[in-house]
């Protein structure tokens, strides 16, 4: 949670940045089902963010079913909603697509483009296996 990076000055509102980061942590399993989340207070102090912003992020995460609240105890991680991973994958693919379109405009062959992409994929997979 502490590794979360917030950019106040981005065009993306801070509450959205927090939601995205937490959704990814939940889908990836870094935050496990039933795990207790830091309180709004603690989260606000740790991230040095306006507590109202954390409250807004938690509220939306709850609406979307990523987390749930237990009165008097706090917030816990829920089972990731169906299709949630698919939604995020689509978003990531969209980002990759944009970049590939840019690369495609350079004077390189289709083979070259494919080769580079495969190398990257292989690199990431190998890194992941070692880690």
């Amino acid at each position: 949670m502490c590794g979360m990076k917030i950019d106040y000055h981005s065009d993306v509102p801070v509450y959205k940045q927090i939601i995205t980061e937490m959704v990814d942590l939940i889908i990836s399993g870094a935050l496990k089902e039933e795990e207790e989340l830091p309180s709004i207070r603690k989260m606000a102090l740790d991230l040095n963010v306006n507590p109202n912003t954390i409250a807004k992020a938690y509220m939306i995460l709850q609406e979307k079913g990523y987390i749930y609240s237990i009165a008097g105890v706090g917030y816990k991680v829920a089972k990731p909603p169906r299709d949630s991973m698919q939604e995020r994958l689509n978003e990531f693919e969209e980002e990759i697509r944009k970049i590939l379109k840019k690369m495609r405009k350079f004077p390189i062959s289709n083979d070259e483009l494919q080769k580079r992409l495969f190398t990257l994929v292989k690199e990431v997979i190998d890194d992941g296996d070692q880690g």
């Binding site: 106040y8 000055h9 207070r41 606000a44 102090l45 040095n48 306006n50 507590p51």
Partner: peptide, 26 residues
């Protein structure tokens, strides 16, 4: 300023430094 929200306080904040305001305000 941010922490005062935890105490349930309300803050009115005037500034000409946008980056500061961006960091704290609702």
């Amino acid at each position: 300023v941010k922490e005062s929200v935890l105490e349930g306080k309300t803050v009115v904040y005037s500034s000409h430094i946008l980056s500061e305001v961006e960091e704290v305000c609702d």
